[in-house]
């Protein structure tokens, strides 16, 4: 990360996250909990978030399977665009922690920060191209009014060149952040780096 972005309470800085209830003590964790933490995330064993979710290891295993298959699977929608959509969802839901992580991932993949700055400033008009704008609009609509999504919403994505496989990846990315944001917002809080 080269440039620090701080806009309207959102940032691309590396934040920490602190749980509001007791987390699993790694020294007392069962072999199953250790195995599932290791398959969930490279740093899960030192993360309050994953150690909280490890209270229900099988549920965490399936959540991580869905999350990793959606965000990292090859093919389909470019990964930078998946990150853009999750930054939009996190911005709309007010999840500062998730937004910071996925702002960084977008920057790593796309080698630019312009779209993320726009998302932090005003998500409803964000997007540097027609394709990005359509992805952003769909992400907002599926987050706020899933019952309004229709064939026309799909057509709007087709019109800017998304394939059906890419549209599926977009649906999944938006949906998995309805899930991720609610855990992050509800089980603890972000910790900002000390000045």
């Amino acid at each position: 990360m080269n440039e620090v972005i701080r806009i309207k309470g959102f940032t691309n800085e590396t934040l920490d996250w602190k749980a509001w209830l007791d987390v699993v003590n790694i020294d007392g964790a069962t072999p199953e909990q250790i195995e599932i933490l290791e398959e969930s995330h490279p740093k899960a064993k030192v993360s309050d978030y994953y150690l909280f979710l490890a209270h229900q290891p099988e549920i965490l295993r399936q959540r991580s399977a869905a999350f990793n298959a959606i965000m990292y699977a090859p093919g389909g929608m470019p990964r930078a665009e998946r990150e853009l959509s999750t930054a939009v969802v996190s911005r709309i839901n007010g999840c500062v922690y998730c937004a910071s992580v996925h702002a960084q991932r977008f920057e790593q993949l796309a080698k630019r920060t312009d779209a993320i700055k726009q998302v932090f400033e005003e998500p409803r008009t964000a997007g540097t191209t027609a394709r990005e704008k359509a992805i952003v609009q769909f992400s907002i609509e599926l987050t706020e009014r899933p019952d309004n999504i229709s064939a026309q919403s799909i057509q709007a994505l087709k019109d800017v060149g998304l394939s059906e496989a890419e549209i599926l990846d977009l649906i999944h990315s938006v949906a998995i952040f309805a899930w991720a944001n609610r855990l992050m917002l509800n089980l603890g809080e972000p910790v900002f780096p000390s000045a």
Partner: peptide
């Protein structure tokens, strides 16, 4: 918490 968050996901996959 996982259940509530999961259903938030499921309804959006369903809508899409």
């Amino acid at each position: 918490a996982q259940l509530i968050a999961f259903v938030s996901y499921q309804v959006r996959v369903s809508a899409g």
